[in-house]
């Protein structure tokens, strides 16, 4: 591609392997995208379709816009409460993850301390520990402490799930902010704290928001702990899981759509930061 004159002459021989490679690549991308998008499409079509259309086949390509299923879902006993619980738990998880994860991320990014790498690893290892294994002891402990069936208790569990990502996202975020900016602020009259507030925080804010939203989504989607640890204060996922076999089909689709849409929108909004977490350049 550097010189047009030379590539033009060779084009016929070279173009073929390149275009067939591109074909494989394109079909792989299409399959992967379809893998993700088709279920979402069906979910949305069925949620927005009329109750009768849910069982109809083939599906119309253009979804109907009938809010009957959604309205039915919204009025279904316990749904508004579960929805509210989901928001509360996810919101609290977000606040806790940022509140605890930001300082940890800052420390990982800025200070060299013995065990920093071990800590980094340990943070990730918490994700390797299966939650079902923890469920019973955790439930017993929560009952003893009085945290069972509470929003806070569930948010604490979700925070431990979201924290590794929050810490690592924010560590890479703070690392991407040159230390000299902070040092310059110190020489210009800032303490460490005010330099953080005036220089680091404004630059890190979008990333911190991303980490928070990611924590929100993790909590929003989490079903196991929510189902085990709560009875009265069920989140939407736990509520749907519990009532899945007793509820009519439109309700399931509507519930699924309500669950998935906020998560999708949020993840789409913060995709840049998730890429940077996995080491993919975002510029």
């Amino acid at each position: 591609m550097t010189s047009l004159a030379t590539t033009e002459a060779e084009a016929p021989t070279r173009a073929e392997p390149r275009s067939s490679g591109r074909l494989v690549m394109a079909s792989a991308v299409i399959v992967l995208v379809a893998w993700v998008l088709v279920p979402i499409y069906l979910l949305v079509v069925n949620a927005l379709g009329s109750v009768a259309a849910v069982t109809a086949w083939p599906k119309s390509l253009v979804p109907e816009f009938d809010l009957a299923s959604l309205a039915f879902f919204a009025n279904y006993a316990g749904v508004p409460r579960a929805l509210l619980n989901s928001f509360l738990v996810a919101g609290l998880t977000m606040v806790l993850s940022i509140g605890l994860g930001a300082p940890a991320g800052y420390a990982l990014a800025r200070f060299r301390f013995p065990g920093a790498n071990l800590f980094r690893l340990a943070v990730l290892m918490t994700r390797a520990f299966p939650l079902p294994l923890l469920a019973l002891p955790l439930t017993v402990l929560f009952i003893r402490v009085g945290l069972d069936d509470t929003i806070i208790g569930l948010a604490l569990v979700h925070t431990t799930l979201a924290m590794p990502f929050a810490v690592l996202i924010m560590a890479s975020l703070f690392m991407s902010i040159p230390e000299e900016l902070e040092e310059a602020a110190w020489t210009l009259g800032c303490s460490r704290l005010s330099a953080f507030r005036k220089v680091v925080l404004p630059l890190a804010l979008p990333g911190i928001a991303a980490a928070g939203i990611f924590a929100f989504v993790i909590s929003w989607n989490e079903v196991f702990a929510a189902a085990v640890l709560t009875i009265e204060n069920k989140t939407l996922t736990a509520f749907l899981l519990q009532s899945l076999d007793v509820s009519p089909l439109p309700l399931k689709f509507a519930g699924g759509a309500v669950l998935i849409v906020p998560a999708l929108l949020f993840l789409f909004a913060v995709r840049k930061y998730l890429f940077s977490l996995w080491g993919i350049a975002n510029r």
Binding site: P178, E180, L181, E183, A184, A185, W186, T187, L188, G189, C190, S191, K198, V199, P202, L203
Partner: peptide, 30 residues
């Protein structure tokens, strides 16, 4: 004493101009 109490100012090799502020706010920061 921390840097801010030493009566110094520093120019860094990579300039360290605050990217979220205008030039005016940068110069007026101290």
């Amino acid at each position: 004493l921390p840097p801010r109490r030493r009566g110094i100012a520093m120019v860094f090799q990579n300039y360290a101009v605050f990217p979220h502020m205008t030039v005016f706010d940068n110069i007026g920061f101290g």
